[in-house]
Design a protein around this nucleic acid. Sequence first.
DNA 1: GTAAAAATTTTTATTCAATAAAATTTTTGC
DNA 2: GCAAAAATTTTATTGAATAAAAATTTTTAC
Lengths: 204, 204
Amino acid sequence: MTSLRARQKEDRRKRIVASAKTLFRKSGYDRTTIEAIAESAGVSGVTVHNYYGTKAGVLLALVIENDALLLRRLDESLPRDETDLIALTVCFARVVMDHATSHLEKAIWRQVLAAVTAESETPLGRAYAKLDRQLAYVLVNRIEALQRDGHLPARVDPVHLGMALFHLQNARFVQFVSAEGLRPDEIETRLRNDLTALFAVCSR
Amino acid sequence: MTSLRARQKEDRRKRIVASAKTLFRKSGYDRTTIEAIAESAGVSGVTVHNYYGTKAGVLLALVIENDALLLRRLDESLPRDETDLIALTVCFARVVMDHATSHLEKAIWRQVLAAVTAESETPLGRAYAKLDRQLAYVLVNRIEALQRDGHLPARVDPVHLGMALFHLQNARFVQFVSAEGLRPDEIETRLRNDLTALFAVCSR
DNA sequence: GTAAAAATTTTTATTCAATAAAATTTTTGC
DNA sequence: GCAAAAATTTTATTGAATAAAAATTTTTAC
């Protein structure tokens, strides 16, 4: 039983986020005012603030919505028969980059990453962190499968390995959006170099 | 031959940054206004903007100044006789965390990290990126020494390895400042787990 | 040493994000 | 339908950011 009030709220949320996405893509983040988003969504500017706290909050909400999609897409896009850990991680990174660029420009992703750090202790920040963890677990699950099939030594902890690889991939993603001219291919090479060097250590 | 004008400019810069550091530490980032920094430094608010562009710019300038110190401190603090790569990286991470917390609170570091991403294409953002690269090279140099002394296989590329380890360490640093309650010991454990898992892969 | 010029800061004004309190509208429960 | 509750809008304020004009100071040239 959803009350009228709850439905209206949900409706406004949807309109605000949809308006924001359109405007951010059309005019960029800085040149889009909260008032413009509010007007386009048919609410007052203060309501947008009441709903999302900050302009960055609206952006984060929008990204979280899209990332639910990425989560499914990732699982589909990673080939089930891939046995090479490096190839798997690189593929993961590429799907993330493709998804990102197909939705928003790099300049806006920089705002997203900035907001995530600045607002890490707020509800929306936590929601993003949770999604990030789910993203990491897509990789962890694949690594567990790899280990089950004997493509990885039994001594490696798949959760730790998955997290480490995710962090590394994420660091390269940050680099990707931080430099306008950097192409996915170049990032792929760097990530490959990272992994090759690490796996070549083989100490003790 | 430094002109009077150049000296005065340098002097104002110093006063602005010093005032900002004092005020940020005393009242936090958000509760410190540019006007307050300006007044304490004996200049107008607009001058602060002219010098650093944004409030975050002032913060970044301040951090860059401190990081020059970190660079030296890091090189001193890393034991020369350390032959274990994991121990070396963990030690590196700890020095960075100690340095960070001794200068500014986590909440302010979150603002720093946010500003770095948001302003990656501005001069101050680039200056920070350059310092980051120098920090990474402290690690790279140590790894090269390790390899020279036969503690690392000849097949590993020390630059790639150093960069990868730096990124991993950095990802954990971001986590460190993003969660108020997270202690350096816990981060150290996580980083150790990352490295242990990666080095255990040993594929092909 | 002084007057013109060049450079730099300050003043002034405007836009917009963020926040708070009061006023208004809408929904809900009876 | 009507009173109470909940939510939105209006109104107002602070502070960051930016731009243009005005004022000041340093430099340069004589």
